[in-house]
């Protein structure tokens, strides 16, 4: 057998840069983000041709200020789904955290402290989801279906249906301040995306996440603490949902008990459209960002095209199914390309 000699080694990057035209095509087709990007591009063209104002400076600003709130939630879902679990309670946590924040402030807590405390509430809710799921060994779908109802009910119980007054003494610049047409929330979205991408793709913890979601038995056999990995992601997911909820409450200057209703479905749709697998172990954060753009752009584009707003859900449904079909189909075909 060949013994590993320095000369026999493949140098780093070799075989990757010598890719032919065909194999770089194959590479692009195999990317999980490709089909959602293509759809996004088509949707933008279609809406622009129907309603040219769709790409006006003002409207682009409107789209960019609503995307981060969905996007940040969807990024959390993506991380958790890659680790092989699920969270349906993000919409409820999205409402629960800002309401707790407002409540803390009416109790006289310093605004900054109240925000931090509310975020810790989010982390605690995620930990609860994770612990119940892992200790009792039940599907997270069930746990979080339950906690979705519990925290939505909790929000209504706490507020009695009447939102606590949004504290006016506090500055909202850091989360939603405006520079031209851009809001600070977009900056936070970019920061969160980059941080999570780094954790997922460039750290050992990210490798454990893919392993845990991809083959739990193998991961455990190689000494990975799969329960710790999952618990951390449950907490991260709920934290991000709470963070996004606080951003929205800052933007709207109010905390409504109905905030985030149905958000869990949009976030899951954005994740799946972006190429993340429901089965765990496979997914990309950039895909989820594209998915979030797609959903909010369809939402906004239908309004600009003066279509009845009922069409929104129909289109999101079609987009979700189409994205997964495209993804599966295109990748299967691309794998068969010889190169």
């Amino acid at each position: 057998m060949a013994s590993p000699s320095p000369t026999g080694l493949l140098r780093r990057g070799e075989g990757m840069h010598s890719a032919s035209f065909l194999s770089s095509w194959k590479r692009i087709l195999l990317l999980r983000e490709t089909s959602s990007l293509v759809m996004l591009f088509l949707v933008i063209i279609v809406f622009f041709s129907i309603a040219p104002l769709f790409l006006s400076k003002e409207n682009v600003g409107v789209i960019l200020e609503i995307i981060p709130e969905l996007g940040i939630v969807a990024l959390g879902i993506t991380m958790l789904m890659i680790a092989g679990e699920f969270d349906l309670s993000v919409g409820s946590v999205f409402a629960f955290c800002p309401i707790m924040m407002a409540l803390f402030m009416t109790w006289g807590m310093h605004p900054v402290l109240a925000v931090v405390a509310a975020l810790f509430v989010g982390i605690a809710l995620g930990a609860l989801n994770g612990l119940v799921t892992l200790v009792f060994g039940i599907p997270s779908f069930i746990t979080t279906l339950g906690s979705m109802l519990i925290w939505r009910g909790g929000v209504l119980l706490i507020t009695g249906g009447w939102p606590p007054p949004f504290p006016t003494q506090m500055s909202t610049t850091i989360l939603v301040g405006k520079i031209g047409i851009l809001r600070a929330s977009l900056f936070w979205f970019v920061v969160v995306t980059f941080l999570l991408w780094f954790i997922l793709e460039r750290t050992d913890f990210g490798n454990w996440m893919f392993a845990t979601g991809g083959n739990q038995v193998a991961a455990r056999a190689m000494g990975i603490d799969v329960r710790k990995v999952k618990l951390a992601n449950f907490m991260l997911c709920a934290f991000l949902a709470g963070f996004a909820g606080i951003i929205q409450s800052f933007r709207l200057q109010t905390t409504l008990p109905s905030m985030g209703n149905g958000l869990e479905m949009e976030a899951i749709a954005a994740t799946v459209i972006g190429g993340t697998s429901l089965g765990g172990g496979v997914g990309t954060l950039i895909g989820t960002v594209v998915g979030s753009f797609l959903i909010r752009i369809i939402d906004n584009g239908l309004i600009m095209a003066r279509a009845p707003s009922y069409w929104f859900r129909v289109f999101i449904g079609i987009a979700t199914i189409l994205a997964v079909i495209l993804n599966t189909f295109v990748r299967e075909r691309a794998k068969k390309l010889r190169c």
């Binding site: 490798n207 454990w208 991961a219 056999a221 000494g223």
Partner: peptide
């Protein structure tokens, strides 16, 4: 149980011992 099929060879080799 030895491998995670959806992960790269490199990531499988160093799984848990990165």
């Amino acid at each position: 149980a030895a491998m995670v099929p959806k992960m790269s060879i490199m990531r499988n080799i160093f799984m848990g011992r990165e």
